[in-house]
Amino acid sequence: MLPFALGLAAIGCGIGLGLIGFAAMNGMARQPEAIGKLQTPMLIALAFVELVFLLTVFVGAGSFKP
């Protein structure tokens, strides 16, 4: 059961990261001079999405009782 749950978490995390990357790439392609401004918020958002997955892995999986 646990690997399946982790896989689900990874799917969610992947979708989130992909959306952020998609939006950021779109913005950068449309406005190359704004790359400097876009990069920081993008990285922060990536970090927060990633954090959710890490929380799932380390807290959720740790407390999982099979």
Binding site: A47, E50, L51, L54, L55, V57, F58
Partner: peptide, 13 residues
């Protein structure tokens, strides 16, 4: 928690 766990999770992961 988020600062520490992020770093830990990425490196240890």
């Amino acid at each position: 928690v988020s600062l520490s766990l992020r770093l830990f999770g990425n490196i240890d992961g």
